[in-house]
Design a protein around this nucleic acid. Structure first.
Lengths: 141, 141
DNA sequence: GAAAATTAGTTGACGATGTCAATCAATGTG
DNA sequence: CACATTGATTGACATCGTCAACTAATTTTC
């Protein structure tokens, strides 16, 4: 119960942080021509090798038609290529291109700078604490 | 430089967390009939008394026309009322209704539960650390 | 003190986005 | 081989927020 109370008071912080690193806070500044959904899809494709369209949809909570459209937009920007799977002709493997990986790396750097800038306002000890906390939280969500 | 490297590795975590508590993760589960933007606008109206439409737009990074539309949707759902300011006839004060405040409270509880559920997977000490980290981070962003 | 400039808000047209349902193609299953 | 399933796509559609033009209220300027 105490825990619920404690986390209830932290909810505003959580939502604020999420807002800052979501479409409204990050878009454009970090993702170039990409929407946040597209960026996340690109991330996912880079993370899972031979990632299918459907897999992206499931992982990011889009319908399969939504996933198709997101991937198509990435393909149009030459950030991924779609390759028909050799094992299963229905499956479409989404592979990031060189450009896609570059963009991903750049976006990470920009976001990292943004985070680093915020973190620079607190002590080194707190920086470590926050980095550790975020890493841990992401794992258990 | 070391800091940049450290934060670069935490960027994925940050984006993952943000994603989970943004439209894709939270919508519906916590916001009822509201979009995340509407929810945030309602939050803002509740936080700043006599909050103008424009203020909401500026705080959440929407254009004024976007803000108008978001507030109008909230009004249609009877979660806020729009009152012409006594001091300045141009300004439109957005005030949460009883319903609006209830929804806000409920949403916070749900999100809090969600966060609490994730936190229950780590030690009490880490819970404290995470709560503290989130609170601190939200302040310096 | 009236004209001009500024500011808050609204609205129409629009582009972007993602869903739903229907469909096609490839694979599995009886 | 017929039938069901699964991955992906597409057309129609609703939602969302922007842009530009506009109205109305206030402030500035001369």
């Amino acid at each position: 119960m105490k825990q619920v109370i404690a986390t209830t008071s932290v909810v505003e912080s959580m939502l604020e942080i999420a807002w800052q690193f979501s479409a409204r806070g990050v878009d454009g500044a970090c993702c170039g021509e990409l929407s946040l959904a597209e960026f996340r899809a690109l991330q996912t494709a880079a993370l899972y090798s031979d990632c299918s369209v459907q897999q992206i949809g499931k992982l990011l909570d889009f319908t399969k038609s939504g996933a198709t459209r997101i991937v198509n937009r990435l393909e149009k920007q030459q950030l991924v290529t779609k390759v028909r799977s050799a094992e299963d002709g229905r499956v479409c493997c989404v592979q990031p291109t060189e450009n896609g990986l570059d963009l991903l790396q750049h976006a990470k750097e920009i976001t990292g700078e943004r985070l680093g800038q915020a973190l620079s306002k607190v002590s080194a000890q707190e920086q470590n604490s926050i980095v550790h906390a975020l890493t841990t939280l992401a794992k258990v969500l």
